[in-house]
Design a protein around this nucleic acid. Structure first.
Lengths: 84, 84
DNA sequence: ATAATATTTAGATATTTGTCTAAATACCTA
DNA sequence: TAGGTATTTAGACAAATATCTAAATATTAT
């Protein structure tokens, strides 16, 4: 739970998830969408991956990232129990 | 949105919300539930309050805190749009 | 008025975090 | 195999964060 909230607690990472919601993207394409260096984006992707919010697949020299929404169910449940 | 996620990104603050889910509590009673100094808890309550996740009411020398779940709707919506 | 209690504010400090540049690794192609 | 592209790793640094103790503020009770 901690990792999840930590991962979501950053505007850039949340925007990455919003991008990936629409389509899978390579690390480079994701980096190009921000005014942040590639290494920084790589670091953000690593945090998202550790939180299981994204998955990655290597194909050749590219690494394609995809969103994993199933893990969001945990956050959803936590919030919903607060609301009752 | 930023304030909200920031406020939720701390185990102690999340536990405070879980306590307040069951019943309103004074600042002192909340502090007693943790192994953390009163000033630190006061600071956490301030962050929760700025995020509108709790409200407070002063009665005499006590300040009673209550959870405000309506604001959680925003987080809920943000997550739900990611899932579609 | 004085003392006690509840809470916050102020200031200090150690840790965590987001960012950068430079270098390393991996893959592809000519 | 040499050079180019994609990505990550390493190391440094500034800013943000969580915590603490000491002091201030506000309220109640003697």
């Amino acid at each position: 739970m901690n990792y999840l909230f930590k991962a979501l607690n950053d505007e850039t990472r949340r925007e990455i998830l919003e991008l990936l919601k629409d389509k899978d993207m390579t690390a480079g394409d994701i980096a190009d969408a921000f005014n942040i260096s590639k290494p920084s984006i790589s670091h953000h992707l690593d945090i998202l991956k550790r939180a299981d919010l994204v998955t990655s697949e290597k194909s050749g020299q590219f690494i394609t990232y995809s969103i994993n929404t199933t893990i969001l169910e945990d956050v959803l449940q936590w919030i919903l129990t607060l609301k009752k």
